[in-house]
Nucleic acid binder design. Structure first.
Length: 571
RNA sequence: GCCCUUGUAGUUCAAUGGAUAGAACGAAGCUCUUCUAAGGCUUUGAUGUAGGUUCGAUUCCUACCAAGGGCACCA
């Protein structure tokens, strides 16, 4: 419809000999002001030397002369010169019908058809706890991956693991000092939690105790050269257990990775790249090997790629990682990395180096950053009194939902499933409802209050719609989008916009547009639900309202899917 | 010092250069002989400061103020 209206305006302007380079068409914030609105009249008024309202009147007259489209009910001039388009009852009904035909494909577009895109996100390190920052990256990454898929892209999900380095040595030091933490009888989640504790102990010993620091450095060397049998054994066990625990969490969160990259491997590739480009890109400075990025861009700065001890830094590993990505996924058209924004400046420098080495990568690398997740009211500890990790946050949130639904007369399995789905929704939604750049104040209490602007609110609207549909089935009233009532409901005026919202989210890599849109749709549906009897044999429009309800469930379920959130059929 | 983010109701967040700056929480009131009250319907309140560009600025530009992050061998 957007295209049709734009063309209509274009034709009218041509007939009037008015030249405009770009016609902007938007949805007015208030639906009373029409379904589409353009400001062309105001844009051209000055150059024509006529008042904007007068120009608008002329254009509208011309449009009305041209218009034959049954989808447009009327066109009006309003405000200081806006031209507002009101769509017809027929249009909204046919868009409901269209959604029924599309089902869960609603909102799909092919702007990225058959493009291969890799999205790297989450990146927790083995031997270290999965913290709330990882949770945030995961929620954003998964959502962006799904949004791109909905635009036709072939998306590969990738995860990058720091399998070597000082953090591993710290954890192993902790494990060696306190052998109880090596207990292997419990679940791998418990074992992983113990390793997390060992890491915390090792990390603080490294800071405070010079003898421990030496020991840890020693362990670190042994991990690299694999010279100590005992350490090798602990390493293999710890790596497996922590990675398994991450997988459990990914399952709850709804992520399945296709590629796992290990730091130890890409470090070697990165070192080769540095060696091959000595003199060309990299140079020696104070014994280290550096890249002076400010030579290419004054806003960038020099960064060390190889330390004076000959060890590769993060930058070099990133170099190797990117090359590896382009190798394992041939014909990749876009390589996206999602991290916290503290890594923005490093990434810019690394990207610059990569663009010089591989000019063809330059337009294909995209770094998306997000803010920090801060916990409101200083509650840095979870309910069990431990430090809040991403994992504890997920499990505690789920537990709170469980508490809330404990009186429902459902089976234990149903309760478990619903609380998991709803808990994850509460968390993910509070991350995805705002634009990705900024920090997030996470309020534990608020996210599980499930009122208003929350994931569970959306799920609740879906569940209610679902039970409407069940009732309709029982009473044998079939959906029918063709016999519609005179009035148009607000939900209808929003449903057809889904496609535009998805494509905007995709082009800006911003899930929050979808989140905000879904809240609006849910609100409109809840209002419709609250003020109308939908299923009724006496109402001749009941079939239409049921069709509308179906359309709503398709949009809501699909929209939530794009946020990485599942829907319970009841809650 | 330089670079990057960000400053919007009491609080947490929205607003592709447009119309009366939207929600939610909080507070006050109403609402289940109707399909899930985790709902619906009312009422209340905000663009950091000073300039500039524009018919029009929360949005763009400049300065200042405030918060966060980054700036050589940690990731």
């Amino acid at each position: 419809m957007e295209k049709e209206i734009k063309n209509l305006i274009k034709d009218a302007l041509e007939n009037l000999d008015i030249e405009v380079s770009d016609i902007s068409l938007e949805h007015p914030a208030d639906l009373k002001m029409g379904d589409y609105s353009t400001n062309v009249a105001m844009v051209v008024a000055k150059s024509l030397g006529i008042g904007p309202r007068e120009v608008a009147d002329k254009i509208v007259t011309e449009i009305l002369r041209l218009v034959l489209d049954k989808n447009i009910e009327r066109v009006e001039v309003a405000g200081s010169g806006f031209i507002n388009f009101y769509l017809s009852r027929e249009f909204f009904s046919s868009s409901v019908e269209e959604i029924l035909n599309q089902g869960y494909d609603v909102g799909k577009n092919d702007s990225l058809a058959s493009k291969k895109i890799m999205v790297e996100y989450t990146d927790p390190n083995p031997f270290k706890p999965f913290h709330i920052g990882h949770l945030m990256t995961n929620a954003i990454g998964e959502s962006i991956a799904r949004i791109l898929e909905h635009s036709g892209a072939i998306v590969s999900r990738a995860n990058y693991q720091g399998d070597i380095g000082l953090h591993v040595a710290k954890a192993i030091y902790g494990l060696l000092k306190d052998e109880k933490l090596q207990e292997k009888s419990g679940s791998h989640n418990m074992q992983s939690a113990n390793i997390g504790k060992a890491y915390t102990q090792g990390a603080s010993a490294y800071e405070n105790d010079p003898t421990a620091k030496n020991e840890i450095d020693e362990i670190n060397k042994k991990i690299y050269d694999k010279s100590d049998e005992k350490i090798n054994e602990i390493y293999d066990w710890g790596f497996e257990v922590t990675m398994k625990a991450f997988e459990d969490l990914y399952k709850i969160l709804g992520t399945k990775f296709e590629f796992y990259f290990l730091e130890s491997k890409v470090a070697i590739l990165g070192q080769e790249a540095v060696r091959d480009n000595m003199g060309k890109v990299f140079e020696e400075s104070d014994g280290a090997i550096v890249f002076k990025a400010e030579k290419y861009d004054p806003k960038l700065h020099t960064r060390v790629f190889m330390t004076s001890k000959g060890l590769p830094t993060y930058e070099t590993k990133e170099l190797g990682l990117t090359e590896e990505k382009f190798t394992v996924l041939s014909d990749m058209s876009l390589c996206i990395v999602i991290t916290a924004n503290e890594q923005m400046d490093y990434m810019r420098v690394v990207s610059k180096a990569l663009s010089i080495i591989h000019p063809d990568y330059e337009s294909k690398m995209k770094h998306i950053t997000h803010g920090m997740m801060r916990l409101a009211t200083g509650k840095m500890s979870s309910r069990k009194g431990n430090v809040v990790t991403g994992e504890s946050l997920v499990r505690d949130t789920i537990a709170l939902v469980e508490e809330k639904i404990k009186d429902r007369e459902w089976s234990k399995e149903e309760k478990n499933m619903v609380s998991e789905i709803v808990g994850v929704a509460a968390l993910k939604y509070s991350i995805l409802k705002q634009s990705t750049g900024g920090d997030i104040m996470y309020d534990f209490e608020k996210s599980i209050s499930f009122e208003g602007d929350s994931g569970p609110y959306l799920q609740y609207a879906y569940a209610r719609a679902n039970s409407v549909l069940e009732k309709a089935q029982k009473e044998n009233i079939l959906p029918d989008p063709h016999t519609f009532p005179f009035e148009t409901f607000e939900v209808e005026k929003l449903l057809y916009q889904f496609r535009e919202v998805v494509s905007r989210s995709a082009s800006e890599y911003e899930p929050h547009y979808i989140a905000n849109y879904l809240i609006e749709v849910a609100r409109a549906y809840n209002s419709f639900y609250g003020n109308t009897v939908i299923v009724s044999k006496e109402d001749k429009n009941s079939s239409y309202k049921i069709a509308l309800t179906y359309a709503f469930t398709f949009v809501m379920k699909t929209g939530l899917h794009l946020l990485g959130i599942q829907v319970p059929s009841k809650m």
